[in-house]
Design a protein around this nucleic acid. Structure first.
Lengths: 153, 153
DNA sequence: TTGATATCATTTGCATACGAATGAGTTTAC
DNA sequence: GTAAACTCATTCGTATGCAAATGATATCAA
């Protein structure tokens, strides 16, 4: 009976779920919530730095001195956003800025000693943040999820 | 040889990847990028409304008149954020506000006729946005991904 | 009943995030 | 060699997003 009804609906409808739009099932909505949850976990473990600020420090640790724009590219921030992040890190003495000798447009960013200490100290916490964010998934699910998520990013 | 080296490293290291922290592989970083990509796809298809604004309209279509706070809960926005979103929708005539008759604290939000028209018109585009966001995945991968993402959100 | 507690909404302050416009410096094309 | 095109950085405006403080109203408990 209900099987017949469903079949009927499928035949009648030109498109599935004509009038139906479930916000809670849209990938964008869930992506936003998952991101919010991660940021909240991050804030609980690293109170004095935001994820973008930490990303900047961690990337500078990787690549060493770079231009502000280049750093932005590496951590997926546009020029306007990265400027604010770097300004705040500079104000706290975690990075230092200098002009490129040859190309005078470029603003070079580098970790200070204090900045380097901070990243090294925070990396173990960052690992825990990753773990806690992924805690609802099994090891196998994590592998699958990360592979698929990377395809979407 | 290289197999022996790897084994040696594993034995020597107290923790795997002691000095290694790859920002690009952390779930938070990729989640942020995936979300950015979605927002960008959204903006390309629906230029005059943001994802949060659309979420508010779509949810009001679902549940009808609700209080501002309750709406915020339904679309995962805190009170301060939802206020700004509703203010801007009101300024554009897409929602209207009224006081709850009994509980005078509550601010009721509802779609205007124009707001309802807008949602109905935009829902097909929102479906396309979801599709485009998920386009890098196969149908099977989408099912897996959505299941796992929901667990994280 | 009234005093403590809880809820709804608002405001302020701070931090991303991005489009668009601008200015300074560099590279390319001719 | 110079004008056009490009790149790097900055600024402005707008929109989330959240913590914390505040005020108004409701509810609960003694």
């Amino acid at each position: 009976m209900s099987g017949e009804d469903n079949l009927l609906k499928l035949v009648e409808a030109e498109e599935p779920d004509e009038n139906d739009y479930r916000l809670q099932e849209q990938v964008g909505f869930i992506l936003r919530k998952a991101h919010q949850r991660h940021v909240s976990i991050f804030a609980a473990r690293i109170a004095d730095l935001t994820p973008p600020q930490f990303a900047a420090l961690a990337k500078l640790r990787d690549v060493g001195e770079t231009s502000q724009n280049q750093l932005g590219t590496l951590i997926a921030m546009d020029a306007a956003t990265v400027k604010g992040v770097i300004d705040r890190l500079k104000a706290r003495g975690l990075v230092e800025l200098s002009r490129h000798e040859v190309d005078k447009r470029r603003l070079l960013v580098n970790l200070t000693a204090e900045g380097r200490d901070a990243v090294e100290r925070l990396i173990p916490l960052a690992r825990e943040i990753t773990q806690e964010t992924l805690a609802p998934l099994s090891a196998r699910e994590i592998a699958t999820f990360m592979k698929l998520l990377a395809k979407l990013a």
